[in-house]
Design a protein around this nucleic acid. Structure first.
Lengths: 147, 147
DNA sequence: AGATAAAACCGACAGGCAATCGGTTTTATC
DNA sequence: GATAAAACCGATTGCCTGTCGGTTTTATCT
């Protein structure tokens, strides 16, 4: 006799931490890019006036960013001194990568694909800038190969 | 007598619908880019085998995408026929804008910033590709201005 | 027009994440 | 070892996606 089995998928989702950044997290990152380092108290002092909240909230946010590997920390006295582990440009690159990777083929670099989507909206200055970066990169490679 | 008032900020958050896309939403978008149009039943038929779920789930997702203004729809018989209202490239551009706008100055373009940190990791082919797109874009502009 | 079936619509719930903050534990320092 | 500072823990809120059952609407058929 045939045994019939209900074959359902668990529909598992969520694999990669695509690293969404909250509003406060972004602000804190920007603070650290500007000031190099800061402990919770310093960061709190900076945001207290402009947006309220408590020291604890800042601490949580710093910790969350640390766990996301976006900040480094070292202990000094009682407190951790935090600093950005990733630069602004690199973070932008990673965010773009995250948000576009599902829409680009494996063969192409997501930034290149992204660029072809956006180039029409760029100014001539920005195009020039980009070209300058490209040429600079090429020059660097020629240098290296002749060493 | 002086009246002292506790002046606290409500700390309001969330203003702009920054439009985060869920996993299923991305899949549905890709389906519609490939097939041009589809009603809930068709989309469901396509995903039923590969990921399970119910027709209702697909319907909800189509509706959410519609409300996000990413899909258009027209009634045909009982059902809505959906189609993408935004192209793949335009969506990529918008996603990049959303995710990076908090980090870039108005004058600069997020992609330029991103490239400056990633260029070292790109292959020569990709650099060439990029340059080709730049030149193509410039050519297009020269064309337009002479019309 | 009224019955019928199809699809939309509504509401609820689970799971995840950022923000928030009170309270407890850890720990550097005196 | 006492003390105060900061980390840590846990709970709560709000928002979003995915999920789906059940009800209402509606196009169509007789």
């Amino acid at each position: 006799m045939a045994l019939s089995v209900a074959l359902t998928f668990p529909i598992e989702l969520k694999k990669i931490a695509s690293m969404q950044l909250g509003e406060l997290e972004k602000l804190v990152l920007q603070y650290l890019w500007q000031h190099q380092t800061g402990d919770a108290k310093q960061v709190y002092a900076h945001f207290e006036k402009t947006r309220g909240g408590t020291l604890n909230t800042i601490q949580s946010t710093l910790d969350r960013l640390f766990k996301k590997d976006l900040l480094a920390r070292r202990k000094q006295g009682h407190a951790y001194i935090y600093s950005a582990k990733i630069g602004r440009e690199a973070l932008i690159a990673q965010l773009i990568e995250n948000v576009t990777s599902d829409f680009v083929e494996h063969s192409e670099h997501s930034l290149v694909a992204a660029f072809s989507s956006v180039s029409a909206k760029m100014t001539e200055q920005q195009l020039d800038q980009l070209e300058a970066i490209i040429n600079q990169q090429r020059a660097q490679r020629n240098n290296q190969e002749s060493e």
